[in-house]
Design a protein around this nucleic acid. Structure first.
Lengths: 247, 247
DNA sequence: TTGTTGGATTGATCCAAGTCAACCGTGAAA
DNA sequence: TTTCACGGTTGACTTGGATCAATCCAACAA
């Protein structure tokens, strides 16, 4: 079975026979807005599906780029590494989101993508995506929107890193996760974090101790209940208020 | 003349008759990699050119999006605004760079683009760009690269904001400007900053006083010579070293 | 020539977050 | 069952950059 094969670079011919046309993520993912016939053409293209085990790399910085990846299930982080050893998590990605867009410009991946839980991805050869999107207007347009959305998301993170204080950053982070879980039909108020305090800190430009203290503060204030990675949001309004007041 | 007309939203029929095919920025800008015939088709599309005076908006957050803009000459900043009044500069753009990519995903601009000096831009209607790039493969591919490059750039800024200390950020900023001026045929060692200390600070997640102090430090160390907005880089190596050492 | 104004510099002080360190809890391995 | 390891929490202390404030400087208008 796919899970037991040596992983990472090996293209494990997958037993998952899901197609875009029957995928329940199609409204979130690349197929958004396509009609049935177009969906089937996209299915042809997205032939390879692969399992990535928790902790394994989907790709590494520097590897040649030739496909983008849609997350079918699971949870990923991406990070960039500086020469001097410093690194930073640039994002957390969940089902229906795309990975690998950063590789287009240099034809090499510029970050690492690592599974934070056992995951399944759909591999989309980029040159074939380009040729199909020359034929299917709505696919082309949606792909542009997805890239643009990534740019806007990054601007949001820049804002967060540049102007917010520690507790605001964490509040923004939790609200963002909550909202994305909601969009996937999960509870908006209760979820498991897939990442460590250190990874959250890296993403938010904070040290893990600061993240931990902020969680404790939120709990004291009654905004959330934390038990390790299990989070329950008790007072969305409280978290939001925390972000908007220029304290 | 175009300069004296009321600005901003008015589409000032331009006297600039430059076409992509004769533009000396074509190797940096969208036309990169196109052959002559393709260039001419792009010319048709990029019909409107406009002057934007220093301090004026090219577009504002919230306005409907229908075109992207290539900077023909001049210098811009983009910034995003939070409800509570905080804002952050998300980038500085110079000749040959594109503005407006953030607007694709929502069909509304998500940031403000403001000229930092009198500038000229080429307006590229987005739906026509999409249809032309369905016909011209290399245009399509290059456009994807440009969007991807923007994502990678943003990751770099996230890195900077998340892991670097004040002086490292400023060093990185100066080196980046220097490198972009070089790519445009200007001196890598001597240039005028178009933005204030406050705008630099906003971009780098620092207060203007901190930026100013860092400039003074760099001068004391002999890395640069600063006089107001005029910068001379005296020791590139020194600046680079400053960035790489986990001090 | 003299204000005036906006940006830049510099100094003194403060505080949010980093650092260092001890300790706890949970789950896996022995 | 104990041990170990890793992630998380908490406390004490330090510090880099923010804040507050004075002053400087260049460009421009009166």
């Amino acid at each position: 079975m796919a899970q037991t094969l040596p992983l990472n670079q090996d293209i494990t011919l997958s037993v998952i026979k899901t197609a875009c046309s029957s995928c329940n993520l199609r409204e979130l993912c690349l197929p958004y807005g396509l009609n049935l016939e177009e969906l089937e053409r996209l299915d042809d293209l997205v032939s390879t599906r692969r399992r990535i085990k928790r902790g394994d790399h989907l790709y590494r910085a520097g590897e040649p780029f030739d496909a983008i990846y849609a997350i079918r299930s699971g949870f990923f982080k991406t990070d960039v590494l500086l020469e001097d050893g410093r690194d930073q998590v640039t994002g957390f990605q969940m089902a229906g989101e795309l990975l690998g867009l950063d590789g287009i410009c240099t034809e090499h991946h510029t970050c690492n993508a690592i599974a934070l839980e056992d995951s399944e991805i759909c591999s989309i050869p980029f040159n074939r995506l380009e040729s199909l999107s020359r034929e299917i207007h709505s696919l082309q347009h949606h792909f542009h929107k997805v890239m643009s959305r990534e740019i806007v998301r990054d601007h949001g993170v820049m804002m967060l890193l540049g102007t917010m204080r520690a507790e605001e950053r964490l509040a923004a982070f939790l609200l963002n996760l909550s909202q994305r879980f909601t969009a996937r039909g999960f509870s908006h108020a209760e979820f498991y974090l897939r990442m460590t305090r250190e990874e959250i800190g890296s993403y938010l430009g904070l040290k893990l101790e600061t993240v931990s203290r902020a969680f404790s503060r939120f709990q004291e204030e009654g905004y959330i209940a934390v038990q390790q990675k299990h989070i329950r949001i008790l007072d969305v309004g409280g978290l939001k208020a925390l972000m908007n007041h220029r304290a």
